[in-house]
């Protein structure tokens, strides 16, 4: 094979997205943005499963009601388009997407 090289993500059959956060989610993740590798055709639920596994209870407390263990309502941006945690978690994400998890915040 000449003239073409697989990228590391193609070799592992994974895709890479950028996850952006702020405030308490940034505190959990440690940075404002991180690269996340997911299987191709992953959706938002897969991303949250990954974050649950990696960050455990500290992530869970930011996004789920601790009595019902259900996701509370908040918005998620995939690039510039908004999705709802209570309705759109099956939204598929693609290689190179920028996903911003808006924290669930009342008030103002």
């Amino acid at each position: 094979m000449t003239g073409w090289k697989e990228t590391p993500s193609q070799k592992k059959k994974i895709m890479q997205i950028t996850l952006k956060t702020f405030a308490t989610l940034k505190d959990v993740i440690g940075q404002k943005e991180i690269p996340v590798e997911l299987a191709p055709k992953a959706n938002l639920t897969d991303l949250f499963d990954f974050l649950d596994k990696k960050y455990g209870n500290s992530f869970d407390r930011q996004v789920r009601d601790q009595l019902t263990k259900e996701l509370v309502p908040f918005l998620i941006l995939v690039n510039d388009k908004t999705y709802r945690s209570i309705a759109d978690m099956d939204k598929s994400i693609s290689d190179g997407d920028v996903v911003t998890i808006m924290i669930p915040f009342d008030g103002g």
Partner: peptide
Amino acid sequence: ANPSTSEILPRYGTPVLVN
């Protein structure tokens, strides 16, 4: 149990809304 009242408001208060 609620992320807003237990985590976000105590840590950042209303200025979290800027971002």
